[in-house]
């Protein structure tokens, strides 16, 4: 899980072109949207694309978005749970 969280931070910074942000600047449980990193709806789309590209996971229910993308840890948990289901 820890490795996945670190990988996600690097991928999020690259995908969203977060200038002057380093992986260590993003807390595992820090909110990603509005407060915290201050991401917006376009970033949400970018994160959905990231999940599909990097982890072959398609977010089937849009209503799950706010819960899944709350923090880096919740994304990592969602990926882990999804991978366990498909294994």
């Amino acid at each position: 899980m820890e490795k996945l969280i670190q990988d996600l931070k690097v991928q999020i910074i690259a995908q969203l072109n977060l200038q002057d942000v380093k992986p260590e600047d993003i807390g595992d449980d820090q909110p990603l949207f509005v407060e915290g990193l201050g991401l917006d709806s376009i970033d949400a789309l970018e994160l959905i694309v990231l999940l599909q590209q990097q982890y072959k996971i398609k977010l089937s229910n849009a209503e799950d978005g706010p819960k899944v993308f709350r923090s880096v840890r919740t994304i990592a948990e969602y990926i882990t749970a999804h991978q366990a289901q498909t294994a």
Binding site: Q15, N17, I42, L45, E46, V49, Q52, Q53
Partner: peptide
């Protein structure tokens, strides 16, 4: 497939 939105927008 899987096109990121920012460049398009």
């Amino acid at each position: 497939a899987l096109l990121a939105p920012t460049a398009f927008i």
